[in-house]
């Protein structure tokens, strides 16, 4: 009987944990902090590009759960990848994202984010923070931030621009590549490495 009770308690606690709701205003404040820091301390600041890149890398590593996202974007190939390949992929994926986004700072100059509240997610411990970015012409662009909370710590796990999820797009792209590449995950890693070195060269020009 004790065992059955313990089992019931265990199930109850687990389901309670799974259903734990993330605090909306807290998630919104978290994204406000990121966008303010990104715009004021990096994009609009009067420091060298090198310093901007450094600050951006710190911001990126601190607030984005790249391990979680990287694991998701490999899809079913995460399971077949070796431990070394997984680690290498996450490193390369992180580096590519930092290089790609830091090269696009100018596009965000003078932009502001208008916060439009939060929406619940079907995934436990996650929430969407809705924002809009006013444009020179036409309607504002919709940018939605997917925030995940683990052990009290919030991280961004996806950014959705005009309905397009960056995580889903990367997952579709990477799994299609691996499927068609004779070298599998290794082929993808090599390709991403090539993109990083190309980006570095074009930045150095």
């Amino acid at each position: 009987m004790k065992k059955i009770l313990a089992l019931f308690c265990g199930i109850f606690l687990l389901s309670g944990e799974a259903m734990a709701e993330i605090n909306g205003p807290k998630a919104e404040d978290f994204i406000k902090k990121i966008t303010t820091q990104g715009i004021e301390e990096i994009i609009n600041s009067d420091v060298s590009q090198e310093e901007k890149d450094k600050r951006f890398e710190k911001l990126f590593n601190e607030y984005l759960d790249l391990d979680f996202i990287g694991r998701f974007v490999l899809g079913r190939y995460w399971k077949t990848a070796t431990t070394a390949e997984r680690e290498e992929f996450i490193d390369v994926y992180r580096e590519l994202n930092i290089k790609t986004w830091s090269g696009r700072f100018d596009e965000f100059k003078g932009k502001t984010f208008i916060f439009k509240g939060t929406s619940p997610s079907n995934s436990a411990g996650q929430i969407f923070v809705n924002t809009e970015v006013p444009m020179e012409q036409g309607a504002p662009a919709k940018v939605v931030w997917r925030v995940k909370e683990t052990k009290g710590q919030m991280k961004v796990v996806d950014i959705i621009i005009e309905n397009v999820s960056l995580a889903i797009t990367a997952r579709n792209e990477y799994t299609a590549f691996i499927k068609n590449s004779p070298e599998g995950v290794k082929g993808l890693i090599n390709n991403l490495k090539g993109k990083i070195s190309t980006n570095v060269q074009s930045t150095d020009k």
Binding site: T100, G103, T169, N172, E173
Partner: peptide
Amino acid sequence: EFLLQSLEEGSVDYYTTIKSSWLQNRQK
């Protein structure tokens, strides 16, 4: 010009990137 250039530069399979983004956008 620059948006498309950066999309292509960051992509390992440009066809899938465009297809996935286009179809996701249509889900609205």
